[in-house]
Design a protein around this nucleic acid. Structure first.
Length: 636
DNA sequence: GAGCACTGC
């Protein structure tokens, strides 16, 4: 182990990567998001009543950006400038600049996007699933349009921002209907793909050699210092760098906080111990350092406390796995934990990988697009809804593996969302596609409607979609366990979630002192808000679909049968040496210690989470009677 | 006997 610096100035041998914060990056990006659409509008791209569509990755970005542009244009929001995000459409027939989240597949309503003259795809380099699907659809729209335009009386547009042309020799589009545009007067849709320059070539090639325009961004002065080579023990290297920085900033005026990016709670707790271990060896006057851990499972109050300034004379070292604004020194070992999905086993695991920034700078390739590393069931369902049946033949910018596509088709088929010939089923497939959930969760309320336990299922689905509402601080673990046990039942985790339903129903006696009640019961109030939000959204949807939110009362046997029918894909039987699963999974599973069924020995279970960390752990599980699993039994 | 962090439809 290299020795820690005790003298000024410290050696620069072990400086790790320091970078600009996400907030700064957003500032850099804001000009093109707010100004560019206005330039296009002023240049006449909204003639003939056409609109400019601008995609955003996040709901929270779409709304304020639209507000700001409306202000700049001196118009009321919702008129010339508007936004559309799921559950919230703030546009009108006069809207000409429309901000929207990229997952909003407008093509559902209008396969040729004929209302739009220009579509700006923002932050395409992030390569979210939605971006990739959107690009594929836009390419298809362009192709379909060009086919009809070539036949029609209109010439192609030839302005200097035309960034897309069709690939020569592409086979004719047979999937998108041409009916909508036959005999109509169409000008070609302009596509502008905004991306970090490293990836521009890939997008250009995908759109048949589209023109690339480079825009110089305004840079914040950020010094980036690297280690000479990758560190074997990155925790140790991080520790050394933190103490080097403490030594440097001792001489400086102004803010003295240090932020260390770490991959997760475990690493944060380790480094905190290491820091204190080292501080104990230093002379009294150099021990004025406070350490502040921040990770997602802390409550928001604890996270807010962590952001308070350090006492005068103290240096503060914040160790985090989440982004925090206003920090001057950043130590970033460049590693994150990421979910990875194995389509063969259906297994997700948490792996530590280099951050995309480090990847992008060290090699010429960029991050693996999300579409190549996630469960595609939802993507396939959405594409089927758009009438795109040939998923294997869909022109993704980067194709997911055939195995991954087949696996999602199989899953959708098992959920009865697809018919025997892999077409969207009616009504189940169509109903499932209307719910903004992964297919396994969108099927659950539909089944629960038949089992007359939709009220219970809505609570469970909302709770399964969020981080747990039960909060377990290390120091008061036993008290927290007692609090959770007041809801728990030997039926399993799902029924335990149902038992906590009073927090969802906004019980008046609890609501009055909600904050106090949450603290006393070790409930994370932020998670609770999140769950309530999702609950009311899904409830609104299923009611619109005509399902009745009825309750099975105390009949938890009935509810467990329904859970079995909904989540039968994830079932496992107890083996002599632990939990071994059947169906497509052939691996040893263990019940996660956070489950109420940890230590109990159910014969047969269904579960919602399977993640490989130290073991293959399942959680959110319910013990079932294997007979319920049989198809005849489930459907009767 | 243990929990990566972000989104979106």
């Amino acid at each position: 182990m290299p020795s820690l610096p005790n003298t000024y100035p410290p050696s620069s041998q072990n400086q790790l990567l320091g970078g600009k914060s996400q907030q700064q990056q957003q500032l850099l990006a804001s000009g093109k998001t707010t100004q560019f659409p206005q330039f296009l509008f002023n240049a006449g791209f909204c003639q003939n009543g056409k609109a400019i569509g601008v995609t955003q990755l996040r709901r929270v970005a779409a709304v304020p950006v639209a507000k700001r542009v409306a202000e700049e244009c001196n118009v009321e929001l919702g008129l010339k400038v508007g936004y559309a995000i799921r559950f919230d459409d703030f546009t009108s027939s006069s809207t000409r600049i429309k901000y929207m989240t990229d997952g909003l597949l407008e093509a559902l309503l209008d396969p040729l996007l004929s209302r739009y003259g220009v579509i700006l795809v923002n932050e395409a380099h992030k390569r979210t699933v939605h971006t990739d699907v959107l690009l594929g659809i836009l390419k298809k729209v362009r192709h379909t349009q060009s086919q009809s335009i070539l036949k029609g009386p209109f010439k192609r547009g030839n302005t200097n921002i035309d960034m897309s042309d069709e690939v020569n020799g592409q086979r004719p589009n047979t999937l998108f209907t041409l009916k909508a545009c036959q005999n109509t007067k169409l000008l070609p849709l302009k596509l502008i793909i905004m991306s970090a320059s490293l990836d521009a070539k890939g997008f250009s090639e995908y759109f048949g050699g589209a023109k690339i325009v480079y825009v110089q961004g305004r840079q914040y002065p950020v010094d980036i210092l690297y280690t000479y080579q990758p560190e074997q023990d990155y925790l140790d290297a991080t520790l050394i760098t933190i103490f080097q920085l403490i030594a440097i900033i001792h001489l400086e005026e102004g803010p003295r906080d240090i932020l260390a990016f770490l991959a997760g709670q475990e690493e944060i707790e380790s480094i905190e111990k290491l820091i204190h271990g080292h501080l104990d060896k230093l002379p009294e006057d150099r021990r004025k350092v406070i350490t502040v851990p921040i990770y997602p499972s802390l409550t928001s109050e604890q996270q807010m406390n962590a952001l308070k300034p350090a006492p005068s004379g103290f240096r503060k070292v914040t160790m985090t796995s989440v982004t925090i604004p206003g920090i001057k020194y950043v130590v970033d070992p460049g590693l994150v934990k990421a979910r990875s999905y194995n389509p063969v086993t259906g297994m997700e695991s948490l792996i530590i990988i280099p951050t995309s920034k480090a990847q992008a700078q060290q090699r010429s390739d960029s991050t693996i697009p999300e579409v190549k590393r996630c469960n595609l069931a939802n993507v396939v369902l959405q594409l089927k809804t758009l009438g795109i049946d040939d998923i294997i033949g869909f022109d993704f910018m980067e194709k997911p593996s055939r195995m991954a596509i087949m696996k999602s088709l199989e899953q959708l088929f098992l959920l009865w969302a697809l018919t025997d010939d892999y077409k969207l089923s009616d009504p189940i497939g169509h109903q499932m596609a209307r719910l903004p959930l992964d297919p396994i969760y969108s099927k659950a309320p539909i089944l629960a409607n038949e089992f007359k336990c939709l009220e219970e299922m809505l609570i469970v689905v909302s709770m399964l979609l969020i981080e747990s509402i039960f909060y377990f601080p290390c120091v008061r673990m036993e008290e927290a366990r007692v609090a959770r046990n007041s809801f728990s039942t030997p039926d399993g985790d799902h029924v335990t979630l149902v038992n906590s339903k009073m927090v969802m129903s906004k019980d008046k006696t609890i609501e009055k002192n909600l904050k106090k009640w949450c603290i006393e019961n070790f409930i994370n109030s932020r998670s609770l808000r999140h769950a309530r939000d999702i609950h009311s959204q899904i409830q609104g949807h299923v009611q619109q679909m005509g399902l009745s939110v009825s309750s099975c009362g105390n009949d938890m046997l009935q509810f467990r049968r329904c859970l079995t029918a909904a989540f039968f894909i994830n079932a496992a039987m107890r083996q002599p040496d632990g939990m071994g699963s059947f169906l497509q999974l052939k691996m040893q599973l263990q019940i996660h210690p956070s489950s109420v069924l940890f230590r109990s020995k159910p014969e047969c279970i269904i579960f919602n989470e399977l993640v490989r960390t130290n073991h293959n752990y399942v959680w959110n599980l319910t013990g079932i009677n294997p007979l319920w699993w049989l198809p005849d039994y489930v459907s009767s």
